[in-house]
């Protein structure tokens, strides 16, 4: 057998190597270095952190390729970058730059309100957001090799992240309890491909790695996500909008690792300074919610 690059096993496999870790949003090479030094297992390059996108309004797009190259040169850990939903040319550009993973992300302004990117066409793997199992399986069907529950990015409010991971895992448990002949209707109801529904019912888990994102601001938030069943976490504004980004980042890494050890979570949470101020997700009008983007 000759060597084959960019196979499903290598795409999905990189996400497997990131499990138990923290992927941090960064907008500059300096941020990326702080994240790496704090123990991040990967960084996510984007134009502005979600809370700034939320505050600034306007259209949020992929990051400047020069900035992405600077970030790739600054760190040895994998570099992910965000493309707009459905913007397959942004994804082509990110692939041409050689990023390690593309996030087709609702945090940026969608470029297509009907179609997501056909991710099978790319050699670089993709991570996509979801709020429930049907959405996760639609993304996997389109070629996503990693899933993250969306939460509500840029809020520092964990409530939506909790809702989404609980929903996703509860729906998986529900499939497991069904008779095989009930899975056809389950697939129809959740608008997901039957083959993937059947596979999830049999295995009791998604066929790809699943992280939690959107609202993690303190170490205990990360540990909560992990105890609820996340395989790792994404942290966006929570780090670089806190009073002490380096210490907050490091503490979130330790709390993700020792998620089931409250003594250690207490220890690493001491004296971190103010977390990001945040905005209660419940006060955000429907039209300004990021999680509802993507379908």
């Amino acid at each position: 057998m000759t060597a084959e690059t960019s196979t499903w096993a290598t795409k999905k496999g990189l996400a497997q190597m990131l499990k138990g870790g923290v992927i941090m949003d960064v907008v500059t090479p300096e941020h990326a270095k702080i994240a790496e030094d704090a123990g991040a297992c990967a960084v996510m390059a984007l134009e502005r952190v979600p809370s700034d996108i939320r505050a600034a309004g306007g259209v949020a797009r992929m990051s400047d390729p020069l900035m992405i190259e600077g970030i790739m040169a600054a760190v040895s850990i994998p570099v992910m970058a965000k493309a707009r939903i459905g913007h397959f040319v942004e994804a082509q550009v990110l692939e041409a730059l050689g990023v390690d993973y593309i996030d087709e992300s609702e945090v940026l302004t969608p470029a297509d309100e009907v179609n997501h990117i056909d991710k099978h066409l790319f050699k670089v793997p993709f991570v996509c957001g979801c709020r429930n199992l049907g959405e996760a399986l639609r993304r996997i069907n389109e070629g996503a090799a990693m899933i993250r529950t969306k939460g509500e990015a840029g809020t520092g409010d964990i409530v939506e992240a909790v809702r989404h991971i609980r929903t996703l895992l509860a729906e998986i448990r529900r499939l497991q309890s069904m008779r095989e002949d009930e899975l056809f209707v389950a697939a129809k109801e959740m608008d997901a491909p039957y083959d993937l529904v059947k596979q999830v019912a049999a295995e009791g888990k998604l066929p790809v790695v699943n992280f939690v994102a959107g609202g993690i601001a303190i170490p205990a938030d990360a540990a909560l996500a992990m105890q609820l069943g996340a395989e790792g976490v994404f942290v966006g504004s929570g780090i670089f909008k806190s009073e002490n980004p380096a210490r907050t980042a490091e503490a979130i890494v330790q709390a993700t690792l020792h998620f089931d050890n409250p003594k250690i979570i207490a220890e690493v949470s001491k004296g971190l300074g103010s977390p990001m101020r945040g905005i209660a997700a419940v006060t955000i009008p429907e039209a300004e919610r990021l999680a509802v983007r993507g379908w």
Binding site: M1, T2, A3, T5, S6, L14, P78, D100, P125
Partner: peptide
């Protein structure tokens, strides 16, 4: 290289 160069073989 980077992720794009990841591969499998026997």
């Amino acid at each position: 290289g980077r992720q794009l160069d990841s591969f499998e073989t026997d």
